[in-house]
Amino acid sequence: MSRTVFCKKLQKEAEGLSFKPYPGELGEKIYNEISQEAWTQWLNHQTMLINEKRLSLMDPQAQTYLAEQMEMYLFGGDYEKPEGYVPEEDK
């Protein structure tokens, strides 16, 4: 049986994650407050950022940047969008 959470990103009850996707306190917060659907959306957005900005995941600055963007994307904030980006629901 899957667990449900009230997703902060989507503002609705939805299926929760089955594991903590990130270490530490932020990972705990994501596990408790973000749905599987919103997490999948973040992974797609993260992939866009990595590709558009040509980020290396070995670079500590890129890791910090992505962690900051993840928190803003999932919990509200002015997260970065690739140039010309139009969210799926606005297309």
Score class of each variant (00 low, 15 high):
His45Val: 00
Met72Ile: 02
Ile50Thr: 05
Lys8Asn: 04
Asn51Met: 15
Asp78Arg: 08
Glu83Ala: 07
Lys12Arg: 15
Phe75Asp: 00
Leu49Ala: 05
Asn44Gln: 14
Trp42Asp: 01
Leu74Lys: 01
Ile34Lys: 07
Val86Thr: 13
Tyr31Met: 04
Glu25Trp: 08
Ile34Trp: 10
Ser2Leu: 08
Lys8Thr: 08
Glu52Leu: 03
Leu49Ile: 11
Ser18Val: 11
Leu10Ile: 02
Gln36Thr: 09
Glu25Ile: 14
Glu83Cys: 03
Phe75Ile: 02
Tyr22Leu: 10
Tyr31His: 11
Gly24Ile: 08
Gly76His: 09
Ala38Arg: 13
Leu57Ala: 06
Tyr31Thr: 02
Arg54Phe: 04
Tyr79Pro: 00
Tyr85Ala: 01
Arg3Thr: 06
Phe19Leu: 12
Asp78Gly: 04
Glu52Met: 13
Glu88Ile: 15
Glu33Leu: 15
Pro82Trp: 05
Glu13Lys: 14
Lys29Ala: 08
Thr40Trp: 05
Lys81Leu: 07
Gln46Cys: 11
Glu33Tyr: 10
Lys81Ala: 04
Leu55Tyr: 13
Gln63Pro: 06
Asp78Leu: 13
Ile34Asp: 04
Thr4Phe: 12
Trp39Gly: 00
Tyr65His: 05
Gln41Gly: 04
Glu33Ser: 09
Asp59Gln: 12
Lys9Phe: 10
Glu71Cys: 02
Gly76Met: 09
Tyr79Cys: 02
Lys53Ile: 06
Met72Gln: 07
Asp59Lys: 15
Ser18Asp: 08
Lys53Ser: 00
Thr64Met: 14
Lys53Pro: 01
Glu68Asn: 10
Arg3Tyr: 07
Gln63Val: 09
Gly77Met: 05
Glu71Pro: 01
Tyr85Asn: 00
Met72Ser: 01
Gly76Pro: 06
Leu26Phe: 12
Met48Thr: 01
Met72Asn: 02
His45Ile: 05
Glu52Gly: 00
Pro21Ile: 11
Ala38Thr: 06
Thr47Lys: 14
Tyr73Cys: 08
Asn44Lys: 14
Glu25Ser: 09
Leu26Cys: 00
Met70Trp: 04
Gln63Lys: 15
Ala67Phe: 07
Ala62His: 11
Glu37His: 11
Lys91Ser: 03
Thr40Phe: 10
Lys81Ile: 01
Leu57Asn: 04
Lys81Arg: 15
Thr40Ser: 12
